[in-house]
C-alpha cells in the first residue's frame, strides 16, 4: 500500500494558493489516487498567513496535515515557509519562492523581518530549494503567475507524473485566456 504523500502550500492571502492546490489535486486525481485538499476561505485570506493541505495516496482520511507529517512545503514567501517548518518531516523538502513580504508587525516597526531564514531552515533539517518565482512569472507575462512557476519547479520532484499530465491538468484548472501565460510560467519553473 502506498504511503500517503503530504504537501502543504503556504503563503500570504491573495498569492494564489487556491489555484496551486487545485492544479495539484487535479493532477493526482487523474493519476487514480485518492486525494483530499483542505483550504482556507474568509477572513484569513485578507493578507494573512494562509495554508492549504494536499494529501494523496491509496486511501486518504484526514483533510489536514499535522506537525511532523509534511513531505513537502511549497511556500510562496520566505517567512511563511519558516512559520510552517514544524509541520515538515525531518529531511522533508521545502520549495520556496525567495520573495519576502513584510507582515503588519514589521510594517509598523513592532518587529523585524528575520534574517537568514533559508539557512536556518536548512540547519533545522529541511531540504530547502529556493527560487525566484516572481521574476519567472514576470518573464512569463504577469507577477500573478508566480504560483504556477513554483508548481513548475515542484513538478520535477514527481517522476511518475509526466509533463503532459501536468499540462492537461493546467488546462482543466485555468481559464482559457490565462492558459498560455500559466503554461509559460510552468515551463520556466520546471526548467529553472
Amino acid at each position: 500500500m502506498m504511503q500517503t504523500v503530504n504537501i502543504m502550500i503556504v503563503g500570504v492571502g491573495g498569492q494564489g494558493s487556491l489555484l496551486a492546490s487545485k492544479l495539484l489535486g487535479h493532477v493526482v486525481m487523474t493519476k487514480g489516487y485518492d486525494v483530499k485538499v483542505s483550504e482556507v476561505h474568509g477572513m484569513s485570506q485578507r493578507g494573512g498567513s494562509v495554508v492549504t493541505y494536499v494529501r494523496f495516496g491509496d486511501k486518504v482520511y484526514s483533510p489536514v496535515i499535522d506537525k511532523g507529517e509534511a513531505d513537502y512545503i511549497i511556500s510562496f514567501e520566505v517567512l511563511e515557509a519558516a512559520r510552517y517548518l514544524p509541520f515538515l518531516k525531518k529531511g522533508g523538502k521545502i520549495i520556496v519562492n525567495a520573495q519576502e513580504i513584510d507582515p503588519m508587525p514589521v510594517i509598523t516597526g513592532a518587529a523585524q523581518y528575520p534574517e537568514n531564514l533559508l539557512d536556518k531552515m536548512s540547519a533545522a533539517g529541511a531540504d530547502v530549494s529556493a527560487m525566484d518565482a516572481l521574476s519567472l512569472a514576470n518573464e512569463a507575462g504577469s507577477p500573478k503567475a508566480a504560483n504556477i512557476a513554483l508548481m513548475g519547479r515542484f513538478s520535477k520532484f514527481f517522476g511518475d507524473i509526466t509533463e503532459e499530465e501536468w499540462l492537461n491538468s493546467l488546462e482543466a484548472c485555468v481559464p482559457p485566456k490565462f492558459l498560455e501565460l500559466n503554461k509559460k510560467a510552468f515551463y520556466l519553473g520546471r526548467n529553472s
Binding site: 491573495g14 493578507g47 506537525k67 511563511e80 517548518l85 515538515l88 508587525p105 533545522a124 533539517g125
Partner: peptide, 20 residues
C-alpha cells in the same frame, strides 16, 4: 507516540489578516 518534526524557528513575527 508523537511524530518527529523539524524544530520551530523562534521569534517569527505573526502575519495577521489586514485590510487590502
Amino acid at each position: 507516540p508523537e511524530k518527529e518534526a523539524c524544530p520551530a524557528i523562534e521569534g517569527l513575527p505573526v502575519r495577521p489578516p489586514v485590510m487590502c
